[in-house]
Design a protein around this nucleic acid. Structure first.
Length: 300
DNA sequence: CGATGTCAAGGAATC
DNA sequence: GATTCCTTGACATCG
């Protein structure tokens, strides 16, 4: 099982994840690729084999008012191939997670159009990187919580408008208030899209009371054979909260792994302390707390 | 230099 | 129909 973290590197004084300059400064994918080589070096030094890239690796690449930027992937094909080779050589699984503005099931045609553009770009990036089928772009179902069935229909309609290669890179995640596991399982039945199981979201939004192991097993079976599924794991800031804590609670995580015994998957950790949370969790799992020490402090 | 406002983008809740 | 929050980090600007 691989453990990964999202985007921002805090260790070693912090590393940039991509070219974050404003569009007026002409940011470019090439600069992001340079930043990513440094991130891969960091991951290798710390034996981290899974990483969520920023969804903005190609800055403003899908901005409708900036046609000059559309060609970034084509302009950097050689550099992308080099970056992908670097990641493959290190055995690092890469993914992206386009944010709240990418809404494939939007009621507004222009918004759905923009989502399709973005997902096509993510797929073009993964293909140019030369990454295997484990490199995927994760999205939520989107909006329309008042009428969930209609929202699911719109999602399928959006999915049907994607190219084969974009479909091949797309996976869908259960969210924490609207589209729960049964909803994304329906999308899987209708389109074949694999499901990323988010453990905290399931705890927040589980109308049918599906036990975590059963829910996890359902989601894992949506992945093609030969492609290792992945799940999202985070600790709530307070019990019942939807916000992520700084770190991962090692006891809760160990209990989750216990419940998941025998199942195979990678885990993307979502914690505000990012890579530092991952390193600390790994340390704490390797050094179990003394009996009765509920805080899980390593022996001083 | 430190503090503060702003950023391409959507949706839900509120009025 | 318009406004505010959600949630996030870092650029950009101002004092």
């Amino acid at each position: 099982m691989r453990l990964g973290f999202a985007v921002k590197v805090l260790g070693e004084g912090g590393l940039p994840s991509h070219d974050t300059r404003r569009w007026q400064s002409a940011p470019h994918l090439r600069h992001s690729i340079e930043a990513m080589h440094a991130v891969l070096g960091y991951l290798e030094r710390h034996d981290i084999r899974m990483y969520r890239m920023t969804a903005s690796l190609a800055p403003y690449a899908t901005h409708p008012d900036l046609p000059a930027f559309h060609a970034q992937v084509d302009e950097a094909l050689y550099e992308l191939a080099g970056l992908g080779a670097h990641a493959r050589a290190l055995g690092i699984r890469l993914s992206t997670h386009p944010g709240q503005y990418v809404v494939l099931n939007s009621e507004h045609a222009a918004v759905q159009e923009a989502a399709i553009r973005d997902l096509e770009l993510q797929a073009a990036l993964f293909d140019a990187l030369g990454l295997g089928p484990e490199a995927v772009a994760v999205i939520h179902v989107g909006g329309g919580g008042r009428d969930r069935p209609a929202g699911l229909d719109r999602w399928v309609a959006g999915w049907e408008r994607l190219s084969e290669r974009a479909r091949a890179r797309l996976v869908v995640e259960n969210d924490d208030r609207t589209y729960a596991l049964p909803d994304v399982m329906e999308l899987h039945r209708r389109t074949g899209v694999p499901v990323v199981f988010d453990v905290l979201h399931h705890e927040c939004c589980d109308r049918d009371g599906i036990p975590v192991r059963a829910a996890l097993a359902l989601a894992l079976r949506t992945w093609p054979s030969g492609v290792r599924p992945k799940v999202h794991y985070s600790t709530p800031r307070e019990p019942g909260s939807r916000a992520h804590a700084d770190e991962i609670d090692p006891l809760a995580f160990a209990a989750f792994l216990d419940a998941a015994a025998g199942l195979e998957f990678d885990v993307m950790l979502e914690a505000k302390a990012k890579d530092l949370a991952l390193l600390r969790l790994r340390e704490r799992l390797a050094t179990p707390p003394a009996r009765g020490d509920r805080r899980g402090r390593a022996a001083a």
